[in-house]
């Protein structure tokens, strides 16, 4: 595996790191993997997970590029006044054109975390060169769900704070029983931050499940996710959706496109993977390793199947 920095695009403003397999002949099925910014985090990804995944996939024989969209990370803003959506599409077109010429690849798999997951879906719908998308923790983009997510996390935080470690701590009990505890703070945390937030979140989810998506604040790519997934499946584009266990994004996706998930999974077009003991950014190393394994296994199986490839895959060590 060999890495090199590249600058490409309009005015060569886009910066990325290209990872090439050691053996050029081992490039798998002329397919390159492109990593998309996780929100505004630069191209190393949250907890440097893009670097780990890109290197693992390059060891397996895939050309990979982790790059920054215009105005993000190391990439300069563009000078042509395009809208955000048009800019993203044009940036990605230029990236794929570049890889097609320099690496002689014709097919692409887009990998995106958080906001990058929705970018991967949107771009795949626009460009048939994209034969696979990996959507990791596709969350956000809806004020109602963002508020729901915050309430759940706040409730969970205080629940864990007052969890077993505190309840079994003699010092805490001593303070509580001798009048030295901050009772106002305890009451506020238990009743407001834990119970009220939990009730409020449950009510939101129930309302959403019964009434469906009634929010004007939902971004179109989220509201139309079901149609998008179905369109990709009809075009034979493979889809891997990965969520951290307990993610509010997973709950929303199930409520929004549960039928499509089921149907497309059965048809072998879509795979849903859930990573246990993981938060949004994969803070724990075990969850990072699990995520990397999930993506690598999916790539291996998907490429073998879609290309009818008889090539063997070289597993490497990062």
């Amino acid at each position: 595996m060999r890495e090199m920095p590249v600058q490409l695009g309009a005015g060569k403003n886009l910066v990325g790191i290209l990872a090439r397999p050691d053996d050029a002949g081992a490039v798998q099925s002329q397919t390159a993997v492109v990593f998309l910014n996780a929100g505004l985090i630069h191209h190393v990804g949250p907890t440097r997970i893009y670097v780990k995944m890109a290197r693992r996939l390059a060891h397996m024989g895939f050309v990979t590029l982790r790059f920054d969209l215009s105005g993000v990370g190391d990439s300069r803003v563009r000078q042509d006044n395009l809208s955000l959506e048009d800019m993203i599409v044009d940036d990605l077109n230029r990236v794929m054109d570049y890889l097609a010429v320099t690496e002689r690849v014709q097919r692409f798999v887009l990998v995106g975390h958080c906001g990058g997951a929705f970018v991967s879906l949107g771009m795949a719908l626009r460009d048939a060169r994209v034969i696979g998308v990996v959507m990791i923790n596709a969350e956000g983009g809806d004020a109602g769900w963002d508020s729901y997510d915050l309430k759940r996390k706040t409730s969970r935080y205080y629940q864990n704070y007052y969890g077993r470690a505190t309840l079994t701590n003699p010092e805490k009990w001593k303070k509580l029983l001798t009048g030295k505890a901050d009772y106002g703070s305890i009451i506020r945390n238990v009743f407001q931050n834990i119970l009220w937030n939990k009730l409020s979140a449950t009510a939101f989810r129930a309302r959403y499940a019964v009434l469906g998506d009634k929010s004007d604040s939902t971004r179109p790519e989220i509201a139309n996710m079901g149609d998008g997934l179905r369109t990709l499946a009809q075009r034979d584009t493979q889809i891997l959706i990965v969520y951290s266990q307990g993610s509010s994004g997973l709950q929303r996706t199930r409520l929004l496109v549960g039928g499509e998930l089921q149907e497309l999974s059965v048809a072998g077009k879509l795979k849903l993977e859930i990573i246990p003991q993981a938060d949004h950014t994969f803070t724990l190393l075990a969850s990072q390793e699990r995520l990397t394994q999930v993506v690598a296994s999916w790539m291996r199986a998907f490429i073998q199947e879609s290309a009818g490839s008889k090539t063997t895959y070289q597993e490497g060590v990062i």
Partner: peptide
Amino acid sequence: EKLRYFLSNIVMDSGQKPTELLGFA
């Protein structure tokens, strides 16, 4: 602090050397 947002309660052992912090070994 970050661990408190997890689904299950994970508590660091304060007496032990950490083997990972905030996503890094």
